[in-house]
Simulated assay, not measured.
Amino acid sequence: MAQPLKQRRRKDYPYFLSYRTRWSDNDQYSHINNGIYYLYFDSVVNTYLMEKCGLDPATSPLIGLVVSSFCEFFAPLSFPQVLDLGLRVNKLGTSSVTYEVGVFAQGQGAPAAVGGYTHVFVERAERKSAPIAPETREGLTKLLGPAAKL
């Protein structure tokens, strides 16, 4: 049986990005609005793809399109907290990858939220599915979780 997302810990994520929340992230209830979490997911995934996988969103011949997404919330966060965004890969296919992001308050061991999405890589111009480039695959392989599927 898979580990429940709420039981994830920092050790479950091989890559982290520190992220400072903004005033505009808060909603009328003074906590981070649920839609903002998807911006955090994009930030950590695309930072990793650019830094470790050789992708440039503006010029790479392949781009990742989001085909599904999810998020589970466990504890509120709010501005001016600093967050640690943990990233792992749960499934790596021929042309797709499923990411998981743990959102941690800085210094905390348990996530406040866990979510993620699936990218399908496509040719930039034609938008046809294409195999993940070798350099990108190499970088993504470093993020595979213990129960990940290839």
Results as ranks from 00 to 15, higher is better:
residue 107 G to I: 04
residue 2 A to V: 14
residue 16 F to S: 06
residue 34 N to S: 13
residue 130 A to M: 05
residue 35 G to C: 03
residue 108 Q to K: 15
residue 117 Y to M: 13
residue 108 Q to L: 07
residue 9 R to T: 15
residue 52 K to L: 06
residue 149 K to S: 13
residue 68 S to F: 07
residue 137 R to K: 14
residue 117 Y to V: 00
residue 136 T to M: 14
residue 10 R to W: 03
residue 145 G to M: 04
residue 97 V to L: 09
residue 117 Y to R: 13
residue 141 T to L: 13
residue 82 V to P: 00
residue 74 F to R: 11
residue 142 K to M: 11
residue 133 A to E: 15
residue 30 S to T: 13
residue 111 P to A: 03
residue 24 S to A: 12
residue 135 E to S: 13
residue 103 V to M: 08
residue 140 L to T: 03
residue 56 D to W: 01
residue 25 D to I: 01
residue 139 G to F: 08
residue 48 Y to N: 03
residue 13 Y to K: 09
residue 42 D to Q: 14
residue 86 G to Q: 04
residue 66 V to P: 01
residue 20 R to Y: 01
residue 51 E to D: 15
residue 131 P to H: 09
residue 92 L to F: 06
residue 42 D to F: 00
residue 113 A to M: 12
residue 52 K to G: 00
residue 36 I to D: 05
residue 33 N to K: 03
residue 89 V to T: 11
residue 91 K to P: 00
residue 71 C to H: 05
residue 15 Y to E: 11
residue 14 P to A: 02
residue 30 S to L: 15
residue 118 T to Q: 12
residue 135 E to W: 00
residue 36 I to T: 15
residue 93 G to Y: 03
residue 67 V to T: 12
residue 63 I to L: 14
residue 64 G to V: 09
residue 87 L to H: 12
residue 145 G to S: 15
residue 61 P to I: 10
residue 56 D to H: 13
residue 34 N to D: 11
residue 146 P to C: 06
residue 112 A to V: 08
residue 53 C to Q: 10
residue 77 L to W: 03
residue 60 S to N: 12
residue 82 V to H: 07
residue 72 E to P: 02
residue 80 P to D: 07
residue 3 Q to T: 15
residue 1 M to W: 04
residue 15 Y to G: 13
residue 134 P to M: 04
residue 44 V to A: 12
residue 74 F to E: 08
residue 13 Y to T: 08
residue 122 V to Q: 07
residue 115 G to V: 06
residue 148 A to Q: 10
residue 70 F to E: 15
residue 120 V to D: 01
residue 72 E to I: 00
residue 121 F to S: 03
residue 40 Y to H: 13
residue 43 S to H: 11
residue 126 E to F: 00
residue 60 S to Q: 11
residue 46 N to W: 02
residue 88 R to P: 00
residue 83 L to Y: 04
residue 139 G to R: 05
residue 25 D to H: 01
residue 94 T to R: 14
residue 68 S to M: 09
residue 129 S to L: 10
residue 33 N to P: 01
residue 119 H to G: 10
residue 29 Y to N: 14
residue 125 A to F: 01
residue 12 D to T: 08
residue 76 P to Q: 15
residue 80 P to V: 06
residue 114 V to D: 01
residue 113 A to G: 11
residue 102 G to Y: 02
residue 10 R to I: 02
residue 149 K to N: 10
residue 129 S to E: 13
residue 86 G to D: 07
residue 116 G to Y: 02
residue 26 N to E: 13
